[in-house]
Design a protein around this nucleic acid. Structure first.
Lengths: 119, 119
DNA sequence: CTGATAAATGCAGAACTTTGCATATATTTA
DNA sequence: TAAATATATGCAAAGTTCTGCATTTATCAG
């Protein structure tokens, strides 16, 4: 490791070292989510959420993919995925708050979860 | 993980997310060192080094142990030790710069390395 | 084309970190 | 006790990050 390596590493760690960003990553490491879900999850205004996402995107930690009206984000750095497991434990396939969060959402991902209107 | 967990995690990551502190930890994860060695290693003034050490100490990442005139620091959080391996790879027992650094040092650790004066 | 919705961007003030420097403390040696 | 050495602390200026808010862009549905 030379000076540049320590700097690159510290830059990536700085991107992670923030409570709301860790919370975002804890969701994104399970499955991709659109901004509207993260907004609901954090209970913060949309520009705030987009800003944290931008920072993570510019640090190369997450990637975005547009899908219709929505933008889906995922953790795209496999090394960071491994770090997140080390920080927070491996993902448990069990009780995931996702379904609560998105009950009211109509983005392509949620639509199938919402029961048909008057069935 | 609740809000407080994300905050505690981010506080510890903030302590690590700094190039000189990572460099210090990369040395300390191998073996304990006194401040004078770290000063020689970084080539930074002593108060600067002590300040980074204080920050790491207050974050609970390293511990100090006084030994005569010197203070030896080591990584005392086993979880952080594992993180450091994940960030920088496991320690290789091979060429370690320790011996170069301390050639001119007379602290208890180094004294045995220095050849007797006019043998 | 218009209006609605999803997301991104820009900016400014507050808060926090970083770093350099002067000084303090504590231990040892003479 | 005095001088020397190792380390810690306090403080202030410069730099960076954080957050809230106003605005912009892009896409989709009518």
């Amino acid at each position: 490791m030379d000076k540049a390596d320590y700097e690159a590493l510290s830059a990536r760690l700085k991107a992670l070292a923030h409570p709301e960003r860790l919370r975002i990553l804890d969701v994104l490491r399970r499955e991709p989510e659109c901004v509207c879900h993260l907004e609901a999850l954090l209970g913060k205004p949309q520009p705030y959420v987009s800003q944290q996402l931008r920072l993570l995107r510019e640090a190369g930690v997450i990637c975005d993919q547009k899908q219709g009206q929505n933008v889906f984000y995922r953790v795209c750095d496999p090394e960071v995925l491994a770090w997140l497991d080390a920080f927070m434990g491996p993902v448990d396939g069990s009780t995931y708050e996702h379904h609560e969060i998105v009950a009211a959402c109509v983005c392509p991902k949620c639509a199938p979860l919402v029961p048909p209107l008057a069935a």
